[in-house]
């Protein structure tokens, strides 16, 4: 589902150019859940952004569902993120002016892929049934993150990209939400690439990769 080949990314800094990704190769199959670990500043989020088409690499090829992102214009990238790729961030960024129910349906409505049965399942499993008429500011952080997860999965995206999705939650909530997230991703049939600095969270997923000095490793350093 996701293929990253020889990707290089550099940033200009006052002290000179810094190479964050120095030829990264990665492949994730449909239904597979991969955790990407690494220290702060190691380039984990950068790789996630490149995979979502939010940023462009200096070299290398990124393909999602067999389509090269480099060949896509802004409109095509928006369409890709709308229907094929879903992003979950530490900041929930729910739409404050819409109800919880509308927030859950938001991305599915954008791509015209509403599925009432799956929606009911997500709401039930995420424990949001009593919160649907509320607005985001009336929810706790954990509840808001559950809404963000439901929003990201309802349209059954082929690829879910998550950046510290439980980073704003306490330890106990994190574990529960993480387990649920993994199960729901599987239920949606999506591939998952999740950035985290927590080994505990990474253990919930199928495979773990470490990003060090711009390259991917299969073992911690």
């Amino acid at each position: 589902m996701l293929s990253v080949s020889g990707v290089v990314k550099r940033y200009a800094q006052p002290e000179g150019e810094v190479t964050v990704l120095a030829g990264v190769d990665l492949s994730i199959a449909s239904g597979e859940a991969v955790a990407l670990l690494g220290e702060s500043g190691s380039g984990k989020s950068t790789l996630l952004h490149l995979a979502a088409g939010l940023d462009t690499p200096d070299a290398g090829i990124i393909q999602v569902g067999g389509q090269a992102l480099a060949a896509m214009d802004d409109r095509a990238l928006a369409a890709l993120r709308r229907g094929t790729v879903s992003l979950v961030f530490q900041q929930f960024h729910l739409i404050g002016t819409l109800s919880v129910a509308d927030n859950i349906r938001f991305q599915a409505a954008l791509c015209g892929r509403l599925d009432a049965a799956f929606e009911a399942e997500l709401i039930d499993r995420l424990g949001l049934a009593t919160q649907l008429d509320k607005y985001p500011h009336q929810l706790s952080g954990g509840q808001q993150q559950r809404v963000a997860i439901a929003r990201a999965l309802l349209h059954r995206p082929a690829l879910v990209l998550a950046d510290e999705p439980t980073g704003n939650l306490d330890e106990r909530s994190s574990g529960a939400v993480m387990a649920l997230f993994r199960d729901l991703v599987k239920a949606a049939g999506s591939a998952l690439l999740m950035v985290t600095h927590s080994r505990d969270m990474a253990d919930y997923l199928d495979r773990r990769l470490w990003l060090r000095e711009g390259r991917l490793h299969h073992e911690p350093g």
Partner: peptide, 14 residues
């Protein structure tokens, strides 16, 4: 701006 960026990440067009 961060919120708008997030929306763009959700597939909202410009």
């Amino acid at each position: 701006l961060p919120e708008f960026a997030q929306w763009r990440a959700l597939g909202v067009t410009r």
